[in-house]
Each structure stands twice: as C-alpha cells, then as structure tokens.
Design a protein around this nucleic acid. Structure first.
Length: 592
DNA sequence: CAACCCCTAAACATGG
DNA sequence: GCCATGTTTAGGGGTT
C-alpha cells in the first residue's frame, strides 16, 4: 500500500488527470486536499495530546494502585477505565475527522453501513463536545471554502446545493448524522447502489437527504432520491472525480484507523500482560468500546445517551471464574452467557480484546462464561460447512479453551447432553456418519422466550444494553421479537459483533462471519417459509443428508412458521480448514 | 416458594 | 466386551 498520510498534491494531480478535468477543477481539489492535510495535522496533534494524557493517567493509576488499601482489581479497573476513555477519545477524534471530511464534501456519512470500519465510532459521542471540536477544526476553513466555491465553475464540495445555497449551509453538520451517532463512510460504488436499492436503506440516502459527498439535496422519499441520484449524480466526469477522491479519503482513513488500532492493541497487550502477572487467574480484558449496535438502536435514541461506559457502574468482573466477555473473534454472536453476574456484559468489545480474550481462554484455564449450548453453536457456525461431528466439536472445545482440556468426561457428557436436549441442534446423517448442525431459528427462539420467562437472561441482555432503548423495547416487547430481524438484532446486540474490525484485523473468519450473518439475515427475511420438516434447507445438496430425528415438541403452531435454518453453507472460507487439522491432533484432555 | 435455566452425573441404547 | 455416540432422567445450584 502506498501510504502517505495525505495524498500529495502530485498524486492528487495524477489521479485527477486521469479524469477529464479542467484546471479549475484541479485547483479546487488541491485546495481541498490542502485543507484536509491541515486538518489532519491538527487532528494528529490533538491525538498526541490524548495519548500523553492517557499515559499520565495510567502512571498515576499505577501509583495509586500500589496503595495497599486498593485491591488489585481496582487497579486493573482503573486502567480499563483509562482505556475506555482512550477508546472514546479515539473515536471522537476519528469522528471529528470524518465530519470535517464530510463537510468538505469528500465524504459521505450516514447510518447503517456496517461494512466499513468507522461506523462504530459514533457511539459515545457527546454532541456538544463534538460540536466544539468541530468548530475548532472547521472555523479556519469555511472562508476558504466559500472562496473556492465562488471562483470555481465546478464545485466539488457542494454539488447539489451550491448554486442556490451559500456554502455555509452545506457546511452545517447534518444534525442527524452528528448526533445520533451513526456514522459510516461509504464509497459510492455502483455495485452497492444496485444492491441496496430495493431495501430503501441506500447508503447515499438518509434522513431525507442525499448523502452524496457535498450534496445535501432534500429528497422527500426514496423514489425522488433515486431520481435525484440518477439526474444529479449520473456517470460523468464530476461524479467519477468525486468518486476517486472519496476512494482516497477512505483509504487514508482506513490507514489511520489501522494505525490507531495497532497502537491500541499494543497498549492492551501491554496492560494485559501486566495485569495477568500478579494474579493466578487473570481476567480477560473487558474493555468497553462503544461499538455499534445497529442503526435502529442508535437511530431511535439519538440523544438518549451517553453511551459512555466510563462510569464505574460497570465493575470489572470481580469474579471467581472470570467471565468477562468473550469475544467474538471467532465467537461471533455467541449467545447466552452462562452466569449471571449482574452487570457486566455491558458491552461490545473492541476488536483488540477480542483477539485477546480468545487467546486468554485458549491459554488460561478459566471457564468460559458461556453455556454449553452457545459454545456448541459457536463451534458449529465457525466450521466451514456449518456442521461438525461430535468429535470435531470436542476438538473445538479443547482447542479454544484451555479449561476444556481437563475433565473431559464431564464436559463431553455435557456436550452430548446439550446436543440431544436442545432443539436447536440438529443431527444430520451424512455419508460418512452424522454431523451436527444448528437450527438458528430455534436457537434464537430460545432467547425471546427466556426474555419473558427467564429473568436471568433478561438481565444479561438488558444490562448489556442499558443504553439502547429501542432495542430493549424490541426485546421486551411482545415476542414480536420472534421475527428474524428482531432476533438478529437481539443477537447482534447481545454480542455486538464488531463488524468494523473485519477489514483491518486480518481475521478471515470475522469477515466471513459478518457477511454470512448479513446474508443469513437477508435470507431469513426472504424465504420465510421453507420446506417444512427439514429444518436445514440451505445446506449443501450434494450430501444427501437428512435429519435423523428432529427433536420434536408438540409444536405450537403460532410459534414457528416453518423451521427455517439460517445456516447456510453459502460461502465458507477456504482458509478455515485448520479445523480439520485438529481432528488429527492428539488431544490431551484425558490426561488428568 | 415456584419456575426457570444451566450443569453434572449416570443409566441405557445402539452400532462398529 | 469396549468404545463412541446419542438419549433420557434425576438432582443440585443459582436467579428472579
């Protein structure tokens, strides 16, 4: 990757010259680019300051921690708090950056785009603070931009409204975008357009406004937006140029994000190691990052809250067995958490601690805080074919959790027990024997049930998302939550898959899982009904499989519109075959 | 206290 | 008979 912090003017020129652009156009772009550089400098300075602050903070806290009256855990807790703040600040910083880009018309920002890395940053923003920052950064550029608008025939920054509205108007932060905390960058690629068009959640359309970079044309409805899109942003030189610029911008942002992530990761690793040293059973880091929920959540309660997890209401898992949150690295959407420590599954975790937690459980003999059912499901879903033999499940357990390397008889029995007991696990005869699959709907069904029925789970979910009122509403509200969408939201929320990490974390599974989930969701929405008795329709046909026996229950007709399995074999990653490897590996679980 | 959930243990069946 | 795999039952602990 070529990675200048900012595209150099030369590069930009090159880029632009590939297009048919007039000198004036080039000039405008260059000006904008310069402004961008300036802003980035500011941002970096700002960021440096934050880093220093953080370090100071940490130092102080370490000192404080030495005082005998402070239990060690508290120290860890404070460090984690510091981290949370750091995360928050980073997010704010990035968001600020985004906003400035948006203001320049170089970037579109809008809700509900889980595919790109920046979406989660918005949570935890404090609007006022944001605006303050915003002011600081932008104040110096407004005039400049206005000037460029005036003298240029082509106005890249305000394609739609510029002629009629003074540039200032278009500079105003879109209040929706800025306050409700759902940001994402979108590169206006054509494919994504057509792909999303039917779903009314067009990346370029939000809050009745066209989100094309620099364009804030008001479009009453989706139809008129489409019209507008086709007329105003058709395939022409201007659009292509904007597109290119946008690509560069995104690239830069990604780069920057990657860097920051790296830094964060290093910090966490550092602290993690430290905190594990003194303790016999180290806790996985449970850092809070205000990762996204879903657009629904944030959309409905924009100002509803300080998503700021910095309050000490969130104790740091003072637990015997250390259920912090496991992650979803590969723990995507794990499911019910086994224990009920009243508070704490507060959040979505950042990508970094994800990896860490995974490592943690791999190496520390700490019981994972998830139920057998959840783990089994996880194991199965992680497999390329979404199906595993019993033995493969065993292997997954031992591979992923040090804890399960002992007492094999016990937990294996439990695994078998769970497989048999829960309807959500479907045994399928294969040519070579039997494999287990997950009936996702069944699995998801459990939760809403529990929500009304099982308080402990309510708690798990509720406490996890105290701030996401709409979600809670959906969950608690009648089991309308049975709709696949709601279920997915719920499950997404529960473990809040950090989709944004997929790109830069280099973990193939994550990305696949993420997209698989999206697909599954779509699939679920589409074929609400599938071939009745076979609860796993999506599976690969080549294997002539049939459930041997479906755990039936006097099914309530109203409860289920036909078992539709969300499990698909659609696109499994070829690079996830080490599962296989493990089969052959000697497992030392019987040593005991 | 009841109703749940989850876990553990164990008996039993079946097939290789 | 042994072992792996499944199924089922029973009981205990925890939570609300």
């Amino acid at each position: 990757m070529m990675t200048p912090q900012v595209i150099t003017p030369q590069q930009m020129q090159q880029i632009l010259q590939q297009q048919v652009l007039t000198p004036q156009q080039l000039q405008v772009l260059l000006q904008q680019q310069q402004a961008l550089m300036l802003q980035q400098q500011q941002l970096q300075e700002f960021y440096k300051k934050q880093q220093e602050q953080l370090q100071l903070q940490l130092l102080q806290q370490q000192h404080a921690g030495k005082q005998p009256k402070e239990p060690q855990q508290q120290q860890v807790a404070t460090q984690q708090l510091a981290f949370q703040q750091q995360l928050l600040q980073m997010q704010q910083l990035q968001q600020q950056h985004l906003l400035s880009l948006q203001r320049q018309g170089l970037l579109t920002i809008q809700p509900g785009q889980p595919t790109l890395p920046l979406q989660p940053l918005a949570q935890g923003m404090i609007p006022t603070e944001l605006q303050q920052l915003w002011k600081e950064v932008t104040s110096s550029h407004t005039a400049e931009e206005a000037a460029s608008n005036n003298h240029s025939s082509l106005d890249l920054s305000t394609t739609c409204v510029s002629s009629s509205a003074p540039s200032k108007t278009s500079l105003i932060i879109n209040p929706h975008a800025s306050t409700n905390g759902q940001l994402s960058v979108h590169t206006p690629k054509r494919e994504s357009l057509s792909h999303e068009e039917h779903s009314h959640s067009h990346p370029l359309y939000g809050h009745g406004v066209c989100k094309w970079p620099g364009c804030e044309a008001v479009c009453e409805d989706f139809q008129s937006f489409l019209k507008h899109l086709n007329s105003e942003h058709a395939l022409d030189d201007r659009s292509t140029a904007q597109c290119r610029v946008q690509m560069q911008v995104v690239q830069q942002l990604e780069l920057q994000l990657a860097k920051d992530k790296e830094r964060l990761q290093a910090m966490m690793t550092h602290l993690h190691v430290k905190s594990t040293e003194p303790k016999a059973t180290p806790q996985p880091l449970n850092l809070v990052s205000s990762v996204t929920l879903s657009k629904t959540a944030s959309e409905a309660s924009p100002q509803s809250l300080p998503h700021t997890p910095t309050t000490p209401t969130a104790p740091i898992t003072p637990v015997t067995q250390g259920p912090s949150v496991i992650t979803t690295t590969s723990m995507h959407n794990v499911g019910p958490i086994r224990r009920r420590y009243s508070d704490k599954y507060n959040v979505p975790i950042s990508s970094a601690d994800i990896a860490q937690n995974q490592e943690f459980y791999k190496n520390a003999e700490v019981r994972p805080p998830f139920t057998y059912a959840s783990l089994i499901r996880q194991a199965i879903l992680e497999s390329p074919e979404k199906q595993l033999t019993l033995n493969e499940i065993y292997n997954w357990f031992t591979r992923m959790f040090a804890y399960f390397r002992r007492n094999a008889a016990t937990w294996k029995n439990a695994v078998r027990h769970n497989l048999s007991l829960h309807k959500c696990f479907v045994r399928v005869e294969n040519v070579k024997g039997a494999v287990w699959t997950v009936d996702e709907l069944e699995f998801q069904k459990r939760r809403p049930q529990k929500i009304s029925g099982n308080p402990s789970l309510i708690k798990n979910i509720q406490t996890s998302h105290t701030y996401c009122t709409p979600l809670n509403a959906a969950l608690q509200g009648e089991e309308a939550a049975l709709s696949p969408l709601c279920l997915w939201k719920a499950s997404m929320a529960e473990n809040s898959i950090p989709l944004y990490t997929t790109a830069s974390m280099g973990n193939p599974t994550l990305g696949n899982l993420a997209s698989a989930m999206r697909e599954e969701l779509n699939g679920a929405m589409e074929h609400t009904n599938s071939n009745g008795s076979d609860s796993s329709p999506g599976r690969s046909p080549m294997q002539a499989m049939h459930p041997v026996h479906v755990k039936e229950e006097p099914l309530d007709p109203d409860e289920n519109e036909g078992p539709l399995s969300l499990v698909t074999t659609a696109n499994h990653s070829p690079d996830f075959d080490h599962d296989r490897d493990y089969e052959d590996e000697p497992v030392n679980e019987d040593i005991e």
